[in-house]
Design a binder for these strands. Structure first.
Length: 377
DNA sequence: ATAGGGTTAG
């Protein structure tokens, strides 16, 4: 039962485990990897839970099991405790590819990319990597944006003749795009033996990132013509391309098609893309109206996107209303909003209001931050 | 029986 829920609803797995303890049923060797996997999937909620699971495995002697050790590494990485993950890893008498992958991918996805790459260098001299381990390495390079390293990793993969999976190709496309080489991203994509929805989406995002909006739309059309159905991630990519490239009508057409052609209910991010699309095109009133009428409650990202558009096109009245909404939602305030608002006043010569906003900032202790003094002068 | 994996609005 714990296994049945470990992926779809990890919290339910944890609940079941508690109940099992309550009924004095003792867990066995196979219970802990499942349990720790559930903990990894919701690390913030189940952190103390996992810590007691860890000590329980020690008490019961299950800590010597490599499955238990591997899931502990994964858990500690995903909850941001790299030191503890490394501690478990160092104490292992024997490591298999899954141990390395749990460590490298775990570190790579929690902001410890340089550490993940160091682990990879150590691993290279101990055991040959497989294509799953390389996914963690690639995502580290993606986060760091180091093109030279990316080129090296790519040739390393070719030299070792690793299995060319769709996941590997997709990761390489994103990596080269993030490192600034759209040409290499495109080449990897073209050479992929097979492509699925994620692969196409990565290529669309790559073009969007590089401002190649019409290429992104072209790839999107090619994808749908090949018979694949876009999901909401694909739409985020193609709509982002439209807003960055000012493809106003194309963006509107695609937004309507989400529900009209594919029967998918647009999500908040799609509405966000549309606000950005209209905002960048200077249609600030229309964007404001759109936000007020959208069926999902707008979040701070949406309001700030709109505020940015107000600043760029000097819509003071809308800006004031929007700032009001933001203040209601975010009590702590955000230095960027004050800077934006002060710019909208400055932009149309209302210096008194601009000074007032800047005074408020100083009063709130915001102007002391170094990033702030660079802006809005 | 149990463990590692690619894409996500500003």
């Amino acid at each position: 039962m714990i296994r049945a829920h470990s992926i779809s609803s990890p919290l339910l797995s944890l609940l079941l485990f508690s109940r099992m303890r309550f009924h004095s049923v003792s867990p066995d060797l196979y219970t802990f990897p499942l349990l720790l996997k559930a903990c990894s999937l919701s690390p913030s909620f189940s952190s103390s839970f996992a810590l007691s699971a860890h000590s329980l495995t020690i008490k019961l002697g299950f800590i010597h099991d490599i499955y238990v050790q591997n899931t502990l590494i994964r858990f500690y990485c995903s909850s941001g405790r790299a030191r503890r993950a490394l501690q478990v890893f160092d104490e292992m008498p024997h490591r298999d590819p899954i141990s390395w992958s749990a460590l490298i991918s775990g570190l790579a996805s929690t902001g410890w990319e340089p550490l993940a790459l160091s682990a990879f260098r150590v691993m290279q001299i101990q055991s040959p990597p497989d294509e799953i381990i390389m996914l963690g390495v690639i995502s580290s390079v993606t986060a760091l944006g180091d093109l030279d390293l990316g080129i090296w990793i790519h040739s390393y993969i070719l030299k070792r003749a690793l299995r060319s999976t769709v996941a590997l190709g997709t990761a390489l496309v994103s990596m080269f795009a993030a490192c600034g080489s759209i040409a290499r991203a495109g080449r990897v994509f073209d050479e992929m033996p097979e492509r699925n929805l994620r692969a196409w989406t990565a290529m669309i995002d790559a073009f969007a990132e590089h401002g190649r909006s019409s290429d992104a739309v072209r790839v999107f059309d090619e994808m749908t013509r090949s018979g694949l159905t876009p999901d909401h991630v694909t739409f985020i990519g193609v709509l982002t391309a439209c807003s960055r490239g000012g493809l106003l009508n194309e963006g509107r057409r695609l937004f309507r098609s989400i529900k009209g052609m594919y029967g998918i209910e647009p999500i908040l991010e799609h509405y966000g893309c549309m606000v950005d699309l209209m905002g960048r095109a200077g249609l600030v009133n229309e964007a404001h109206d759109f936000v007020l009428r959208m069926p999902i409650r707008p979040n701070l990202v949406i309001w700030r996107t709109l505020l940015g558009a107000c600043v760029n096109f000097g819509y003071v009245e809308v800006a004031e209303q929007v700032k009001e909404r933001i203040a209601e939602m975010d009590e702590h305030g955000h230095d960027g909003d004050y800077v934006l608002l002060s710019n909208v006043y400055g932009g149309i010569g209302r210096w008194a209001e601009k000074d007032y906003v800047r005074c408020t900032m100083r009063h709130a202790g915001i102007a002391k931050t170094p990033g702030c003094s660079l802006l809005g002068n």
